[in-house]
């Protein structure tokens, strides 16, 4: 009896979280045995927070993102958005992948309309939105270009704009700029921070770049491998908006060094 009461109490306290991840396990069937990729994952996210899932390859960070996005089902545990269990992909959530996955036979404009077409939305309203979004990602006037006429960085900008087309509350970004060169990546990271801060959207970013995670996030979830588990969830208490100057602060380098320690990278 008392357990039930406690549980109800917990739920009441948690009501101000947008995303609740409680005791999640995930395993995949491989041949005869099941391989556990995520073990006992707990994470609560408030609306508007910028979260990074950070860890080495194989820590299950992409799997966790797909669970939140409803693209996979957890083996056990509770996963909720706005108090409702996640049962599949939702319109509250926008996904962005490492590859831009633009359809090569569609122009930029037609690519941006894809999410609207698929959800039978209002195309005319959406068309008006396209101009604004292209301006937001710095590609005003590129409506009628085909993807192959754009560089990798430009394609990812379009991909970001497409994610924003349906105006989702939560952005799930799976190493979105991971395939780009360092300079383009940094530029896009700052664009992303601007967009997140201006729109107040929740962002969950999968990355394996420590400094990027610290610079951008309110909270960094550091994951370990075999199986994927949370090593530590670190609140980054650096005021926003953050600029290049942040990287010169002692506070910033302490966070970075602490995470390096956690992950066991570098020479001591």
């Amino acid at each position: 009896m008392s357990i039930l009461v406690n549980d109800a109490l917990d739920r009441n306290l948690e009501t101000n979280y947008q995303i609740e991840i409680h005791n999640i396990y995930k395993s995949f069937d491989k041949r005869d045995s099941a391989v556990t990729v995520l073990e006992n994952i707990n994470l609560n996210v408030r609306a508007g927070e910028f979260i990074s899932l950070l860890g080495p390859s194989g820590c299950g960070k992409s799997t966790l993102l797909k669970l939140i996005g409803g693209l996979l089902d957890q083996s056990s545990g509770r996963l909720e958005i706005d108090g409702h269990a996640i049962t599949g992909p939702s319109k509250k959530v926008g996904f962005m992948f490492q590859k831009a996955v633009l359809l090569p036979w569609r122009t930029v404009q037609q690519n941006l309309l894809l999410p609207i077409e698929l959800s039978k939305g209002n195309v005319e309203e959406a068309n008006a939105r396209i101009g604004q979004l292209l301006e937001l990602v710095g590609l005003k006037g590129y409506e009628h270009y085909y993807p192959k006429e754009l560089s990798g960085g430009m394609q990812q900008r379009i991909s970001l704009a497409r994610t924003l087309m349906t105006d989702p509350d939560i952005l799930l970004l799976d190493e979105p700029f991971g395939a780009l060169d360092e300079f383009t990546r940094e530029t896009l990271n700052f664009s992303l921070m601007d967009i997140a801060e201006q729109s107040g959207k929740t962002v969950i970013l999968v990355t394996h770049n420590i400094s990027e995670a610290v610079l951008m996030s309110d909270k960094v979830v550091v994951l370990g491998i075999n199986p994927g588990h949370v090593l530590e969830t670190i609140d980054i208490n650096i005021p926003k908006p953050r600029t290049d100057q942040v990287m010169a602060t002692k506070q910033y380098s302490e966070y970075v060094l602490h995470i390096r320690d956690l992950l066991g990278v570098g020479r001591k």
Binding site: K66, P89, K91, F95, K99, V101, E117, L118, S119
Partner: peptide, 26 residues
């Protein structure tokens, strides 16, 4: 059809018919 394009359509809650005509067939 590559995995990420499938995931994109899945995340956009695309119907089977739409996935076929707008992704697989082209």
């Amino acid at each position: 059809v590559d995995e990420e394009s499938r995931l994109l359509f899945q995340s956009l809650v695309a119907k089977k018919k739409d996935t076929f005509f707008k992704l697989s067939l082209p």
